[in-house]
Structure formats: structure tokens, C-alpha cells
Amino acid sequence: MFVGPAVISLAVIGIAPLIYAAYTSFHFFNLTKLKHVEFIGLQNYAFVLTDGVFWQAIGRTFTVLGMALPVQVALGLVIALVLHQPGLTLLKTLARLGLVLPMATTYAVVGLLGQVMFNQKFGVVNQLIGFLGVDPVNWIGNSFNAFAMVIFWDVWQWTPFVALILLAGLTTVPGEIEEAAKLETKSWLTVLRYVQLPFLVPGLVAILILRTADTLKLFDMVFTLTRGGPGSSTELISLMIQRVGFRAFDQGLASAQAIILLAITIVLSQLYIKFFYREV
């Protein structure tokens, strides 16, 4: 009936490939040795689960999340609180429109822009920090700096998202309660902690779950910015699977990695539904 077409097409393009990926993951399947496809049971999984490189990539992915998310929430909260204040309507409308820009920017372009702006010799970032008396930094060629750069761009792109979600939360606080609280105390921190925070919790949960999912998906920006390098210092999980599957051509192993990533994702989705779609 009504759902038929959508279900069938998603099944064909979404589910069928996954079944095929599961099939590949049980085989030795190398694109350069297609004559030797061979059933090897759980060997790929055994390899992935004991593979230090795989867990390092997972670890890096969660490190990006763990470093970027607190910054995004802190900055986002400040921005949301400022925008929530009355007055300065024109400037605030402009700022809100400004916040839309980073979110919509093509992820690949963010990475390219990062290369241009953070270039050691010709980049504007080194020029700007030069005004503060800091020596030029080798951003792209140094493992630690490259990692910091990935986090910087993630913060740049997604802080507005966090800010706008929190702002939406702030507007759900009933006006009278907020006014009454502001008469009681001069400290905005108290108002935030006891009056506004409870209204921000659903937004914060959504941010946590969605940012986790998006960091696990993060590919385009890092690929154009560093290609996972130098070495493998910025190789997040998506980049690693892409490298194993399409640059090392080991589709069997990459599929096993992908299936494990999928399992993590399904747990996340369960959480998301648990928090937001109870009524359905």
C-alpha cells in the first residue's frame, strides 16, 4: 500500500548490500585476487577484534568526540545564552543566520579550506597567530597538530548546531518561571543550573547521541584535510575501513570491520529511540 514503495526501495538499496557485506565478511575477498575468494568463517572477525590498529582507529574516533563535544557544548551554551537575551534584535538575527553557514558547508570543502588556511607557509592561521607572537606551526605535517586541526574544524562546523539546539531548549522555559527566578537571584549561573538546565536535558541527550553517530560517520572532512595522516594519526574508523577496502583492497576484512561498526550504530539508534520516540 502506502509504505510499500519506500520499504521495497530501501530494502533493495539499504538491506541487500548489508547482507552482501555480511557474506563478504566471512570470506577471504581481495579485489586484486578475485580468483581466490574463499570461505574462512569467522577469521576476519577474529582478526579485527584482536587487531590493535582497528581499536586504535576506534579510540581516535572517540578521542575526537571526547575532545570536541565538551568544547561544542560549552561554546554552544554561551552562544545560546547570549542569543536568548532580549534586545539587539538585528545583530542577533544576523548571528543566527551566520550560525547556519558552518553547518551547511560541504564537508569536503571544510577540509580543503582547512588545508588552505592552515598551510604552514601560505596559511592565514599562522599569520594571525604570528601577530600574537607565536612562531609558525606545522599543522598538517605533525601528528599532534593535525589531530588538533581535525578537532578545530569539527568544533567550527558543529558548535552552531549545538547552540541552536540549546537555544530551542531555552525557549521552552516558561517565561514567568524565568522572570521570577531572575528577580530572586542576580546570578545567571543559578538561573541556568536550577531553572533552565532541566529544560536543556532532552537537547543535550540528542546532541550526545547524534554527535556520537556523526563522529563515527566522519569521513569527508578528514579525508580532504589530512587523508588520515600524517602516518595514521588522524585515521578515524570510517577512513580506516575505506583504506582497507579500497586502497588495500581487502574487502573481506573491511566488511567485517563495517559490520562491527554497524553493530555499534544499532545500539546507538536504540538509545535514540528510547529517549525520543517512546510514543510511537
Binding site: V3, V7, L10, I13, G14, P17, L18, Y20, A21, T24, A213, L216, K217, F219, I237, S238, I241, Q242, G245, Q251, A254, S255, A258, I259, L261, L262, T265, I266, L268, S269, Q270, Y272, I273, Y277, V280
Partner: peptide, 20 residues
């Protein structure tokens, strides 16, 4: 069905890219 639709939002594209 709803759960499946939501999972699609979460799945990393690389998971689909390999078999596709």
C-alpha cells in the same frame, strides 16, 4: 519500520559503500 528508518540516519556510509 520506524526503528529501521531511524537506523538509516545513524549508519556510517562506509558500511554501505563496500558492498554497494
Amino acid at each position: 519500520l520506524w526503528f529501521w528508518f531511524i537506523t538509516n540516519r545513524m549508519v556510517s556510509p562506509i558500511v554501505l559503500a563496500l558492498p554497494f
